[in-house]
Each structure stands twice: as C-alpha cells, then as structure tokens.
C-alpha cells in the first residue's frame, strides 16, 4: 500500500524486480476478472460450461471479439474508430449486392474494399488532421445511409453458394469455425506486431506522439495502416455475423460499436493510447461477451439488465485499468 521505502542499506537496491512483478500482476488482472466472472456464473448456473453451451458462446462471441481486436489497433495509437459496427453491417449488404459480379470471390473483394476504406479513413484523419472521433463519426453516418440505400432497407438472404461464408458457418471438431478464424487473426496480427517495426511504432505513437513524430515515425502511413486493420477486422466480424444469420441487413451489427469500446477498455488497453495490446483485446472481448450473457445467466430481471451491465462494466474497468502508466486521465 504505502510507498515508504524499507530501511535498508541505500546501496542495495530494495526489493529487486518489485516494479516488474507489480506490472506483471497488473497485466493479469483482466484475466483474473474473466476467470472470476466465468467461475461465478458456472457456480450459479451449472451447465454454462458444457461443450454445447461453450460452442454457442464461441459463435456468438466471435464477431464481437474480432471487432474488439480490430478496434484495439487504432486505440493503441491514441485514435478511435467509431465506424466499425457500420462497416460490419455494410459488409453483409455488399455481399448480397456484389455476389452477382464476383461470384465466389465476393468475400475477398468485400474485405479488400473494407481495408481500402479504412486506409482512406486513417489517411483523412492523419493527413488532414481531423480528430478520429469526428472522422469516423462522419463516415459512420455515411456508411449507415449507404447500406440502407444499397439494401433498400430490407434484410436479404445471402447467396447460398458462397464458399467462404459456408466455411465460416461450419464447424471443425465440433467447434465453430468462427472461433478458429478469430485465433488465426490474432496470430497473424501478433506476428506483425512482434516482428515488424509497425508494432513498436504503433505503441510509440500512442505513448508520446510528438516524440514519436520527431524520431521519424511515419504518422500518416501508420495511422492509415491502423485504420485499415480495424476496418478489415470489422468486415471479418460482419462475415462472421452473416455466417450465423444467413441474412444481410443494414442494421445487422447494431450496438456492437459500444460493446466493442467496452471490450477494448476492459482488456486493459488505455483509451488514451500506448498501453495494451492484442492479448488485452482478446481478454476484453471475452469479458464483454460474457457480461452480455451473464445478466441472463444469473437471472437478473429484464428491467435490471441495463443497470447491471453498466455497473459491472464500470467495476471491471475500475479493476482492469492500469492508471500508473497514464499521466492524465481525460
């Protein structure tokens, strides 16, 4: 608790590794919260951990997890992408619209379009120096109008021959493929972050932008990359969603935007940037997905679900935010 140094010889460093151990402990908090949450609900409602139940959970949680992982990248740089749910929704609409043109390649085309759109968005934000919050809010409004226009505001069935959607909607070893897709995505992104300069630069930009800029980090290019990734992930999340619903709709992803922000923060990623990472995104996504069903599992009355969700999210954020690394809390 206290910061009073133990009265030891000043020449001998007191408690070596204390700070490191503390940091490691902090990093473990989100995981502990997740385990606690799952544990408590398993005690209250046994059967929640049965294979069938977990499979259902995976296919429901996968789109949210992918969104959270994608959103983490711009947030690491200190920006925010509010357009993710809009992109996820329009993905389904585009699938239907473009299927007659691109046939089996439609999914690939849609994801590429999303990457491009994200890159453009990041470029606009960084090059024109418009705050990301308002850039993506503007594009969110445009995206939702566009998907309503393209779909004529109706839900349409997907072409049933799409190989990629069928693959995503299927199971391997009785586990939904969307779960595996999430794992592959995390692995690929983790490799990029670990073994290229990009990962380091992203953190540098988030932790101290001015210093990073002065030391030659290419801001515009990096931000375009970050937003491209988050848009690409959003498109993947959209694909995962439609693989479950088999229908596209202009409002498919609905409030997943708010849940994805909650997810990013719950994993311990700082909204101000520079702190967190992919692993945090995974844990945060899982906690949020679990919170969403926990209110039902523990039998909260429907009128109380909003409050319980809000309060539990606040408590979880309180526990998982590492304030020692953030100077000013905005």
């Amino acid at each position: 608790m206290s910061h009073v140094q133990p009265a030891t010889d000043p020449l001998v460093p007191a408690k070596p590794g204390f700070a490191e151990r503390r940091a490691a402990l902090r990093r473990g908090v989100p995981l502990a919260v997740l385990i606690l949450l799952v544990g408590v609900s398993a005690i209250i409602a046994p059967g929640t951990l049965s294979p069938a139940a977990l499979n259902g959970f995976i296919s429901d949680a996968a789109p949210l997890m992918i969104l959270v992982i994608g959103s983490t990248i711009p947030i690491l740089t200190g920006s925010i992408d509010l357009s993710v749910a809009g992109i996820a929704s329009i993905t389904g609409v585009m699938l239907v619209v473009l299927a007659p043109i691109f046939g089996p390649w439609t999914c690939l085309v849609v994801v590429l379009l999303a990457l491009l759109f994200g890159a453009l968005q990041g470029w606009l934000h960084a090059w024109l120096q418009i705050p990301s919050f308002i850039t993506t809010l503007g594009t969110l409004s445009m995206l939702s109008g566009l998907s309503l226009l393209l779909s004529n505001a109706t839900a349409q069935p997907l072409p049933d021959s799409d190989p990629f959607i069928n693959l995503l909607g299927d199971t391997s070893f009785d586990i939904p493929n969307t779960g595996f897709a999430t794992l592959v995505l995390v692995a690929v992104l983790a490799l990029v972050m670990r073994y290229t300069r990009i990962g380091r630069d992203l953190f540098a930009l988030g932790a101290g932008e001015r210093a990073a800029l002065m030391s030659g980090v290419r801001n515009v290019r990096l931000r375009s990359f970050a937003f491209a990734i988050s848009a690409g992930c959003a498109a993947l999340a959209g694909l995962a969603l439609v693989s479950v619903t088999q229908f596209s709709s202009p409002t498919l992803a609905g409030n997943l935007l708010l849940l994805s922000i909650v997810g990013v923060v719950l994993g311990g990623t700082a909204i101000s940037g520079g702190v967190g990472g992919l692993w945090a995104g995974v844990i945060g996504g899982l906690i949020t997905a679990w919170l969403r069903v926990a209110t039902v599992l523990i039998g909260v009355k429907p009128t109380g679900q909003y409050i319980v969700f809000g309060v539990m999210a606040l408590i979880a954020v309180f526990l998982t935010t590492d304030r020692t690394k953030i100077g000013i809390i905005k």
């Binding site: 929640t48 139940a53 259902g56 969603l241 997905a289 039902v296």
Partner: peptide
C-alpha cells in the same frame, strides 16, 4: 445478436 447470445445462455 444480443438476443441470440442470451437465448444461447438460457439453453445452455
């Protein structure tokens, strides 16, 4: 998506 997740939890 919330409906699906919650129904899943009840069926579980």
């Amino acid at each position: 998506s919330q409906l699906l997740a919650q129904l899943g939890a009840i069926f579980a």
